[in-house]
Simulated assay, not measured.
Amino acid sequence: MKAADELLVIADGLAFDEDLAAEHLDGGKTVLTLTAEKAIPEGFERIDREFAWAGIMLANGSLVERLAEMPSDVDPQSSLLRLALQSGTKTGAVPDSAVSDHRWTVLRNRNVLQAFEVNWLNGAFSPARPIAPVSALADYAGLAVLKRHSHPIKAARAAGGLGYALAAIALLSGYFGYAAVGFVLAAIAAFAFRFGSAIFSILNGRVARTGARRVLKVLPGLLLEAALIALAWYSVEASERVPALFAIVILLALLRLAAEWQRTHGFPEMRDMFEDRGVIGIILAIGVLVGQLVPVIQVFAALVMLVLLFQTYSSRITRA
C-alpha cells in the first residue's frame, strides 16, 4: 500500500448505518468517535477519558508500514487507531443517538444483533399494509425467507422465474378457454414477483442504479398487466371483446394514476392497494366465474375514479 492511498478500517463486529458513516467520512481522513460514557458500556474501544472509537476510521495508507514495524503480537486495529491519532488524523463525532436507536452498535450478543436487524429492516424496507393483501403476504414471506434462508438472492431469483412461468401459463389458460384459472395464476404470479422484489429491495436498495435494473424492475408489472388485458379479451364472447378491452385498459390506467397520486401526496397504504395486481387477478377471476366480467371491471374502475376524485377534492380543500 502506498502512502498516498487511503486506509479504511472497520472494527470487528461493528454494525453501522452506511449513510451516516459516509456523511462523517465525506471530509476525508477521519477517526470516528463516540462519547465514552455512552459507548464504553456498549463494547466500543476507549480512546481517552472523554471519547471512544466508533469503530471506523479513514487514514493514510502509510500507517500500514508503521504497523509492520511493530511487534507481531500487537492488536492491529488498536495499533492502527493509535497511529492514526498520533499522526494528527482528525476526529469526527458520531451522535450518541445512533447508538441509542441501534443504528451503530457492536454485535456482542444475540439481543444486540436482533435489535440492529429490526432497525435495519425497518429502514431498508416497508412491507405493504393489509389493505393490499397479496402484496403484504409476499412482503412478509420475503422478510421471513431473508431471515432464515442462507441464500436469499437465489430464492428471489427462483420466485422471479416462477412468476414469469406462471404469467405465461396464465396466458395459455386464457387462450384455451380457462380464463378464471388464468386470472388466478396471474394473481399467484403477482405474489411471486412481489416476493422476489421484496428481497431484492432489502438487499440492494430501492433504487435501480443501472438501466438494465430499471427495466427488470418494471418488467414484471408490465407483463402482469399485459396478461390481465389478454385474459380479459379471451374470457368474453367475441361481441364483448372490445368493451372488455376498453374497460380493462381504463381500469389499469386508473390504478396506475391513483398509485402515482398516492406516491406524490404521501399515502403509502393506498398506494400499496392500487399497485396490488394479485387482488385484481382474484377479483377478475370471480367476475369470470359469475359471468359478469365487464360489469365487474367497470364497477371497479368507477370506484377507483371516485376515490381519486374524492382525494383530489379533499386535498384542494385542505390547501385552501
Rank of each mutant, 00 (worst) to 15 (best):
R157T: 12
R157E: 14
A158N: 11
Y164Q: 05
L166A: 08
A168K: 07
A168D: 10
A170W: 00
L172K: 09
Y175I: 07
G177M: 05
Y178F: 15
A179Y: 02
G182Q: 02
V184Q: 05
A187Y: 00
A187T: 00
I188Y: 00
A190V: 04
F191N: 03
F191E: 06
G196H: 00
S201N: 12
I202K: 10
G205A: 12
G211I: 08
A212I: 13
R214C: 02
L216Y: 11
V218W: 12
V218N: 09
L222W: 08
L223C: 08
L223H: 01
E225N: 12
A227C: 15
A230E: 00
A232Y: 02
Y234F: 15
Y234C: 04
Y234A: 03
E237S: 15
A238F: 11
A238D: 09
S239P: 00
S239R: 13
E240D: 14
R241D: 08
R241I: 07
V242H: 06
A244F: 05
F246C: 10
F246T: 10
A247P: 00
I248K: 03
L251Q: 10
L251A: 14
L252R: 07
A253Q: 13
A253D: 12
L254G: 06
L255S: 11
R256I: 04
A259K: 11
Q262A: 15
T264M: 14
G266F: 06
P268M: 09
P268Y: 08
M270C: 08
M273T: 09
D276L: 07
R277E: 12
